[in-house]
Amino acid sequence: MKSTTSKRSKKAVTAAGKSARTAAKRLRSAKTVASPAAKRQAGTRSKRIPVRKGRALPAGFEAIERFVKRWALPTQNRRQARRRKSTTAELQDFYDDMLPVLPSILKHVDTFPLGELPQASQRLFFLALSLAEVAPHIELYRGDPNVPYAFEESRFVAEHGEKIG
């Protein structure tokens, strides 16, 4: 599968363990302490543009930046394929760190009009969409990366499968 994310950055993930509360607190002050990346993107109205470069997320979400390369995927088909190719441990790891920040993510993306997210926020939104894809497998299917006792997933063709967002 071709990847639209950047080459793996070797930089250490600085804030991987930050708590959700810290993340939420930082989000509230995000407007004043926006990262350089966020500032650069301010004012660029990137409508439905897939993530091409970089792994930066808006300030306050450093803790989940480690998931960008793997899970900030622009289409449902790609999120579904990634979920199916993941191990239970990978799904659980993603779910565990995403769940606490989900409300902050939704609050953040709603500071922009529908479909008009700057790049870093768009990446963050793609992560949340991946959580929507992954959540049933942790919450309902006991970690099974596939839908248990189901029709072969790849045979279902989704009209929106390649739609970005």
Binding site: Q76, L114, A128, E133, A135
Partner: peptide, 16 residues
């Protein structure tokens, strides 16, 4: 969806 968060909620409902 009118908002990004609603768009997300629809994604979850529809995936399920």
């Amino acid at each position: 969806a009118q908002t990004n968060s609603q768009r997300w909620a629809l994604e979850y409902a529809q995936v399920l």
